[in-house]
Design a protein around this nucleic acid. Structure first.
Length: 691
DNA sequence: AAGGAAGACTTTTTT
DNA sequence: AGTCTTCCTT
């Protein structure tokens, strides 16, 4: 089992008891060490898998860890999960002690936001004065710091704090009344439980005698407290982290937890893993060039004995479409060299950037997958369906009920809803319980009817039942629009999620499904791996590696993101993000940026990201940069200001010949022939040519 | 009283 | 570009 490990890695693996801190640079084989260590503990030291808890950062990582351990020593039943799903487990086992009922539901951050908007309104605050987003984030970061409303009250200094305090208090009350918890509660409630009931804590301490935590630099205070409590009795705790890869400060992550660890466990063993086994030298050197610019960091000596590899390609695109086409062109070259699609990844800073790729890949029929929450579970139709499932499971879930009581439209408007809310507050009942008559009663009957069907069929059939009986399906079908068709398709896709879920875990209850699905951000986790090109955000790619990596959208304002430009701390986090992105690549790295990009429906001009400039020139292949660029590509871009006047004729790539009928600053209005009609165009767009 | 259309406004990153 | 708000029509 120790074969192929270096000295440091071996040292980490064979120590049985006590605290251990593994400082692992990117690509230094930390997952290998972690999984080997767990396997070694079981097979060599005879520790029961039942006593092992391994916390990972994503669900994907926990699955991978299970698989790797299985391949080492065969199937073993260790507990491998994320902090949040571990919290769910504890909650499921102790909900009554915390004053919750069995059918509690988990709200995601979108739901929290909706609730906060509503509470602001109820408290008569103008959402323009006090941004619901800001308030949600403040509440969340307080919860992650374990500052509860009563404590927060002491910190109130100005009006905004006061609003946050009032909303925070009401928010917590409402959640409790709803028998629902948010993501942060999944960490906080176990801590509260353990503080209150020492016998319960001891039970968990005796159960999880060996604790492993991956990505320790991205744990927040609540997570720190939680693991400290559980490991306190036996003190067998092993954490792995890399300060240079800390990228979740916005979520309350505190890399100082690594420093705290050395304080908490004075005689802990520290292991440094500094050899990178992943990337070719040039890639690693580029990563070092970038991260070197961060002032607040411990200098590390990450090295590789691999060969240099090829230079990093740099491309300056005229706009985001050009960027996509460049990347597709390069991908085609790779595919011609019979490189597999699953070995190629495209990374970007924001989810919104994926759209152009999606469109172009679809058009060109290139198989791809977009990894990320945004694209499935936050779609309206999916959230509606989930809300139905929750209300059926827990009719007292007012928040979900409000979402769907009039979806699809069934004649229940604001008036009816405020009457219900008034009644509910007077009688201290849930909205559902207050419904007795009218259109709302028809809704209530649908829910009751569905509840009745629940035990009669599989979950997948039940979804179909919901789609039919609630009229969700019919409403979309009657719309006859492309958009509605896509929504219908997504709902069909949802059935494949439940189907896979059922196949994977055997018969599954609505309860289990709801608890799990709220923590799974990504539909792809349930799909088998076809050969496809992977697209994802830099945050989502953490912990993964690909032979060929494209980092797109390297512009000031995008990456680094504009919101991070004012503070040095945030800028350094952006730089760590860039470091993470670069170190994903094994064979070859491609960087690109666009001079012009559509953002919020507007064209924006950008300059090259500072992160590109930070990379030593000799590592870059700049032959595709503007000056010496590919002439064919460049010839289509008109940099000069072409002037137009009324009556000028022009040729458009797709619309053909047209006549200018109106001229404004940047936009011209053109009448085209052959029934195409009038179009507004950008004067200098590369697709038009003055005749 | 509910539904629809036009306008305002916004999302950086995720469990 | 897409969602949420506001106002107006039915």
């Amino acid at each position: 089992m120790l074969e192929g490990l270096n000295e440091q890695q071996k040292k980490a693996v064979i120590q049985k008891d006590g605290a251990m801190l593994i400082l692992a640079g990117a690509g230094s084989g930390k997952t290998k060490v972690l999984t080997t260590k767990i396997a070694y503990l079981i097979s060599e030291y005879g520790v029961s898998p039942y006593n092992i808890l391994a916390i990972t950062f994503t669900n994907k990582a926990s699955k991978e860890m299970q698989q790797r351990i299985t391949s080492l020593i065969g199937k073993s039943s260790i507990t491998a999960s994320t902090f949040h799903s571990f919290g769910v487990k504890i909650l499921k086992e102790n909900y009554d002690l915390l004053g919750y009922k069995k059918n509690f539901v988990i709200l995601d951050s979108d739901d929290s936001l909706t609730l906060i908007k509503k509470l602001l309104k109820d408290l008569n605050y103008d959402p323009k004065m006090f941004s619901p987003y800001v308030i949600r984030n403040k509440i969340s970061s307080n919860k992650n710091e374990f500052i509860l409303p009563s404590e927060y009250k002491k910190f109130v200094r100005n009006e905004e704090d006061d609003v946050v305090y009032k909303v925070y208090q009401l928010y917590e009350e409402t959640l409790k009344r709803n028998n629902s918890v948010d993501f942060d509660d999944l960490l906080i409630l176990p801590i509260i439980l353990f503080r209150q009931f020492s016998d319960v804590l001891e039970r968990y301490q005796d159960r999880y005698k060996y604790i492993f935590i991956d990505e320790y630099q991205d744990t927040n205070h609540a997570q720190y407290l939680l693991t400290k409590m559980i490991s306190d009795k036996y003190k067998n705790i092993c954490v792995v982290g890399d300060n240079d890869q800390s990228i979740y400060a916005f979520r309350g992550a505190n890399y100082k937890n690594i420093l705290n660890f050395e304080n908490d466990y004075k005689n802990c063993t520290v292991v440094m893993l500094e050899q990178n086994y992943r990337s070719k030298k040039i890639i690693l050197e580029a990563a070092n060039c970038v991260i070197r610019n961060n002032k607040f960091r411990k200098d590390k000596n990450l090295w590789s004995d691999k060969e240099d590899g090829s230079l990093i390609s740099l491309y300056q695109a005229s706009d985001e479409k050009d960027e996509v086409n460049y990347i597709i062109g390069e991908i085609k070259k790779l595919l011609d060299k019979s490189i597999e699609k699953k070995d190629i990844a495209i990374l970007y800073r924001t989810n919104a950037q994926s759209r152009v790729f999606e469109q172009e890949f679809l058009k060109q029929n290139i198989p791809f997958r977009i990894v990320g929450s945004f694209y499935f579970y936050s779609r309206k139709e999916i959230k509606d369906l989930l809300a139905y499932l929750r209300v059926i499971y827990n009719p007292n879930d007012d928040i979900s009920l409000l979402r769907i009581i009039n979806t699809p439209k069934r004649g229940i408007g604001n008036k009816t809803i405020s009457e219900l809310e008034f009644k509910a507050s007077i009688e201290n009942k849930s909205l559902f319980d207050c419904i007795v008559e009218g259109k709302a009663k028809e809704f209530k009957d649908i829910i009751l009817d569905l509840k009745n069907d629940l035990d009669k069929m599989s979950l997948t059939d039940f979804i179909e039942d919901i789609l039919n009986k609630t009229g969700l399906k019919k409403a979309l079908e009657e719309e006859h629009s492309l958009e509605a068709d896509i929504r219908l398709e997504n709902l069909e896709e949802f059935k494949s999620v439940t189907k896979n879920f059922e196949d994977l875990t055997g018969v599954i209850s609505l309860e289990d499904f709801l608890l799990e699905v709220s923590l799974v951000s990504d539909i792809e986790e349930y799909k088998d791996d076809e050969d496809r090109i992977t697209l994802m955000t830099v945050h989502a790619v953490k912990g993964l590696e690909f032979p060929y990596v494209f980092i797109a959208g390297l512009e000031e304002g995008i990456f680094p993101h504009r919101n991070s430009l004012n503070s040095n701390e945030e800028l350094e986090e952006e730089r760590r993000l860039m470091y993470v992105a670069i170190t994903r690549a094994k064979e070859k790295l491609y960087l690109s940026w666009a001079k012009k990009r559509m953002l919020f429906g507007e064209e924006q001009l950008s300059i090259k990201s500072r992160f590109i400039n930070e990379i030593d020139e000799k590592l870059l292949d700049k032959s595709l940069e503007s000056s010496g660029g590919i002439k064919v590509r460049e010839s289509k871009v008109y940099d000069t200001d072409q002037q137009y006047k009324y009556g000028d004729k022009l040729l458009h790539e797709t619309y053909g010949v047209g006549v200018v009928v109106d001229v404004q600053d940047k936009i011209i209005t053109v009448a085209f022939q052959n029934g195409i009609g009038i179009k507004k165009l950008l004067k200098n767009h590369k697709s038009i040519k003055k005749l």
